[in-house]
């Protein structure tokens, strides 16, 4: 009986949805191949919270619970997981490509002298080999990859795979595993949760930008509210900055900051080339503009023709709805 070992990621004692997605996907693969799904939970004081992993399809839950494991530490987590992988002789190791997963998985791969595929958006088994699809060149091309060796390792992109409670109500109790040496050359001094801090446009993964159409500094609050609901930074076009509505540090464009976030929402701006040159690298562009002939409407991935003063507040409400 082969084993698929899954890293079930938690933060502050709460298991993450991304982890459930991987467990669910592992369950699917296991059902096809007759393997066991074993979830590894690492943290502090999480014993009574592991049960849910069984509902998503874990056959066994291995628990490493120790005060020293409260926060993610790459070296201790890696040691724990590698020990579990060796113990279970798992042939497939799956992670979620979250910040933690991206940091952890390659260490484990190297420690076990295995190659891995990160950030996969498709996964399947073929002849006992893990076959994955993953984006290359910022999604311009997809690669179909066959992973060989033992173990075979992959991390899955969050929000791509469904988290399904295929075994609703199932109760799997956690097995505590013996902990390896928890010494680490890296120590976590502090964890700061963001909130309230103004995000810089050049660092943000989501940016909401207002242009001339915002019509005044006092109206930027609706832009700010949408940004806040998305944990996004607020950007401004040159026109808005020139008019003195926003500080220059917020300016996105050829002569401001050149950004390439995952999502760029442009409200009340035509998307003239000086602006376009600063944000055309964004992975997804949304435009809200009254003028359906504005150049941005042709270039944006998605656009809404409408008054930003009506549309943006509704967007904020909708985002809040699903984020809750």
């Amino acid at each position: 009986m082969s084993t698929i070992l899954v890293f079930a990621e938690q933060q502050d004692g709460v298991f993450k949805k991304a982890g459930f997605e991987v467990v669910s996907q592992a369950r699917k693969l296991a059902d096809e191949s007759g393997a066991d799904v074993v979830a590894v939970a690492i943290g502090s004081g999480i014993e009574d919270k592991t049960g849910v992993l069984g509902e998503y399809g874990a056959d066994r839950i291995l628990l490493a619970d120790d005060e020293k494991l409260e926060n993610y530490n790459p070296e201790t987590y890696k040691n724990v997981f590698v020990a579990a992988a060796r113990d279970t002789k798992a042939e497939i190791l799956l992670f979620s490509a979250t910040t933690t997963g991206k940091d952890l998985a390659p260490r484990i791969a190297a420690a076990m002298d295995s190659s891995m595929a990160s950030d996969c958006i498709g996964i399947g088994l073929n002849d006992g080999k893990l076959n994955v699809d993953r984006p290359l060149y910022a999604g311009k091309v997809f690669a179909h990859i066959v992973i060989e060796g033992n173990p075979q390792i992959a991390s899955l992109r969050p929000n791509v795979f469904e988290a399904v409670k295929s075994r609703e109500g199932q109760n799997v109790s956690a097995e505590k595993i013996s902990l390896p040496d928890l010494a680490s050359k890296i120590s976590v001094i502090e964890v700061r949760r963001s909130g309230g801090d103004k995000l810089d446009v050049s660092e943000a993964e989501i940016i909401v930008t207002g242009g001339r159409g915002v019509r005044g500094p006092e109206h930027f609050d609706i832009i700010e509210e949408l940004a806040h609901s998305l944990d996004a930074a607020v950007g401004a076009t040159r026109a808005a900055v020139d008019a003195g509505w926003r500080p220059h540090e917020d300016q996105v464009g050829q002569t401001g900051k050149v950004v390439s976030p995952n999502l760029y929402i442009l409200c009340g701006a035509s998307g003239a080339i000086q602006h376009w040159a600063g944000m055309s690298g964004s992975k997804c562009i949304v435009a809200i503009n009254k003028d359906e002939n504005a150049p941005i409407m042709k270039k944006a991935d998605y656009s809404i023709i409408g008054d930003l003063f009506e549309v943006v507040p509704v967007m904020t409400a909708e985002v809040k709805k699903f984020r809750e």
């Binding site: 050829q254 050149v258 080339i273 000086q274 376009w276 040159a277 055309s280």
Partner: peptide, 10 residues
């Protein structure tokens, strides 16, 4: 100009 031969780097 260097990379894409136009000043907007498109």
């Amino acid at each position: 100009l260097e990379t894409n031969s136009n000043p907007w780097n498109l």
